[in-house]
Structures are given as C-alpha cells and as structure tokens.
Amino acid sequence: MHRFGQLQLGLVFYGVSAACQIQSGLGLDPWDVFHQGLALRADVQIGTMVIIVSGAVLLLWIPLRQRPGLGTFCSMFVVGLSINVGLAVVGQAHHVVAQAMLLAAGIVGSALGCAMSISAGFGPGPRDGLMTGLAARTPLSIRQSRTLVEAVALVVGYFMGGTVGVGTVIYVITIGPLTQFFLELSTPSKSR
C-alpha cells in the first residue's frame, strides 16, 4: 500500500505542478502546450483534455504491443483531475517574481512527481509508454522517440494556441536532470 500511496501522491504532485506552470503564464511543457491548444478548441478544461488525450494515446499502444499497468490508468485520471483542481486553487501570476516562482514550483514539482510515480513501479503513464513502445518497435532510441513525440506535441499545440514561452525552454532543458536527481534520491543505495 505504501507504493500505491506514493504513486497517487506523485501523480497529484505532477498535476498540481502543471497547474502552477500554466498559471505562471511563462510557457508550458510540450505536452501541455498540446493539451491546452486542444482544450481551447474544444472549450473544456485542460485537465479534462489531459484525460481525453491519455485515452487516445493508449489506443496507440495497441500496435506497439505495450501493456498498461495500474499506474497507467491512475495517471490518466489523477493527473487530469489534479490539474483542474490546481487551476482552481492556484491563482494566475501577474508579477514577474510570482511568475518565476510558479514556474520553478511547476518544473521542480513535475520532476519530483514523475520520479515518485516511476519509482512506485506500477507501470508507465500513457505518454511514457508511447515513447518506450516506439523505441522498442522502431529504429528510434528512447531519446529519439521522446524528442520526436514531444516535438510533435509542441508544434501541433502551438498552432492550436497553446502557450509557448521561456518556461517551455527551461522545462525542456531542466526536466531530465531534475527527474534523474529525484529518482536517484528515491532509489536506495546498494551500500545500505
């Protein structure tokens, strides 16, 4: 039960952190640029669109022969709902200092939430499974498949009206190292 609680807490962290980054107004991560662009077109909340897109991405797992885990389905719903709740609670920043603080909280919180949910071991989220499935079934490496999927989401989202800015660039540059840092903190040392 401890690992399941860790998974849920990590997913809530991830969703609320996304809400912080949205409310910073400085630019979203590539997938949320896509989610926001679609949400604007469909006139729904961004968290609701995260749930819808997660379901659609899971359909792409079928030809890639990926198998979802409990964490996959939890990720679909908990992250989307947490974004919607986070947006209702976290106000939009209008001053540059508040914007920077929300952006930092969003990026660091996303990395921490990602590390917590991964280390819980209940299966990848829908987008991560798409990345690993592409890497397993095509000549693309994990890095290449991740870059391809994120780049497509970013470009399509941008043209649909998603927010791209300095926060997007900072997210792309820092999310990998920060997630690795938190994963290393959460992985027990072999010397213990």
Results as ranks from 00 to 15, higher is better:
P177S: 11
W31C: 11
Q21G: 07
S145M: 11
I107R: 02
V12D: 01
L40I: 12
T72D: 10
L148H: 04
A105Q: 05
R67L: 09
M76L: 15
L140Q: 03
G55A: 11
M160F: 12
G15K: 06
V169F: 13
L103I: 02
A151Y: 05
T132I: 15
G109K: 08
G5M: 14
G157S: 07
T163E: 15
L11P: 05
S191Q: 13
R67Y: 04
G47C: 04
E150F: 02
H2A: 13
G55E: 06
I62E: 00
F159W: 12
V12A: 08
L103T: 01
A56N: 01
V155Q: 01
T168E: 07
T147E: 09
Q180N: 12
A19W: 13
L38D: 04
A18L: 14
L11R: 01
W61S: 06
A39N: 03
L28F: 10
A105T: 06
T179R: 00
M101R: 11
T163D: 13
V53D: 03
G5P: 00
V90C: 05
R127E: 08
Q45T: 14
G106R: 01
V166K: 01
P126C: 08
T168I: 05
S189T: 13
F159Q: 07
L148D: 04
R146C: 10
G162F: 09
I51R: 09
C114A: 14
V155N: 02
D29E: 15
V90H: 02
P139M: 00
I142C: 06
L9V: 15
G176S: 07
I142H: 11
K190N: 12
G161P: 04
G69F: 07
A120M: 03
G86P: 05
I107M: 10
G91S: 14
D29H: 05
I173V: 15
V85I: 15
L154E: 05
M131L: 10
N84Q: 10
V57L: 13
F4H: 04
L130P: 05
I51Y: 05
